[in-house]
Amino acid sequence: MPKAFRETDGPHHVAIIMDGNGRWAQMRNRPRLFGHQRGAKRVREVVEACPELGIKYLTIFAFSTENWKRTQVEVAGLMSLFRRYIMKEMQAFVKENVRVRFIGDRPRLDAKLRTLMDEAEQMTSHCTGTNLTIALNYGGRDEVARATKRLAEDVQAGRLRPQDVTEETLPKYLDTCVLPDPDLVIRTSGEARISNFLLWQSAYAEYEFVDTLWPDFTAEELARLSQSYGRRDRRFGAVSA
């Protein structure tokens, strides 16, 4: 990690679209699931790098609402991988003081996976270090639609007046209601699109699109991108002094 990096220079909330697992595996003549397995291992290294970089919140895009369109074999393999990952990593995350949360539409996931997700959140609820949020069966439009439905129900029930609905109201109904908005969104694998990820929350985030495939993404690259973020002039619509 570069010595010149200062903790206060970098982003406090980094969100990552972890893309390129399948291509990484295919380049090595291996099944796509092999790439997903290697990508899961890469998460640990990135999580462990966060405290030194001053990254308090890390949100990773694990499975989108659109990923159900993939082959049945790949989807089943991914669900099995998620279950194994949670069972394997949770004790380590507790030891490392990492708080784990999940965002996304849970009902479509299988019962065992949902139970493991609940247990992971409960087991790490006391942790005060890095906040790791895993987006699982998540889509930005789906999240906004679900949030709007809950908001409308509160209006209909008289718990909220229509005139009180503002730009600050909707975020309270989003899956990320307890999280700050991301400062930096990173997408790996050379694709330059946001793929329905944190649409509301990342309105003023900085973006980095890198060519590295996710299984090759390192803590050093995260540090470099965090340094680059620290040199940006973030004006939020205003003019620099």
Rank of each mutant, 00 (worst) to 15 (best):
L170Q: 07
A135N: 09
G77C: 08
R83M: 14
D9C: 13
R32E: 07
L179P: 07
D175W: 05
R235K: 11
L58G: 04
V94Q: 01
D142C: 08
Q163C: 14
C50W: 02
R108Y: 13
L58P: 00
L113G: 01
T169K: 05
T188W: 08
A92E: 14
G140T: 13
Q26D: 10
M27W: 01
P182H: 09
I86S: 02
L160Q: 06
A62H: 01
R70F: 04
V46M: 07
V178Y: 13
V98Q: 01
R114Y: 03
D142H: 07
F197D: 15
E206C: 11
R106H: 13
R101N: 00
Y138A: 06
A157H: 10
E119K: 04
Y85W: 04
D154F: 13
E220F: 11
G104S: 09
G20T: 00
V144P: 06
L213V: 12
I186R: 02
V94C: 10
Q227P: 03
K88E: 13
M27T: 05
E208P: 07
H36M: 01
V73Y: 07
I55M: 00
I16W: 01
F236C: 13
A152F: 03
R30T: 08
Y85P: 04
R23H: 00
Y204S: 07
E52P: 03
Q26H: 12
V239D: 08
L151Q: 05
C127I: 12
F102S: 05
E153G: 11
S64L: 06
L78D: 05
G22F: 10
T59H: 03
L174F: 11
F209R: 07
Y57H: 15
R28W: 02
V14H: 04
K149A: 07
A40W: 00
Q91F: 05
I194R: 15
L81N: 02
Y138K: 06
R146Q: 08
R231G: 15
K88F: 05
R234L: 02
D164C: 13
M87T: 15
P162F: 10
K88I: 05
F217C: 12
D110W: 11
T65W: 03
T218E: 12
E96V: 03
Q163Y: 06
C177S: 15
V75E: 05
N97M: 11
E191M: 00
S189I: 04
I55E: 02
G158Q: 09
N21F: 03
D142P: 04
N67A: 07
R44Y: 14
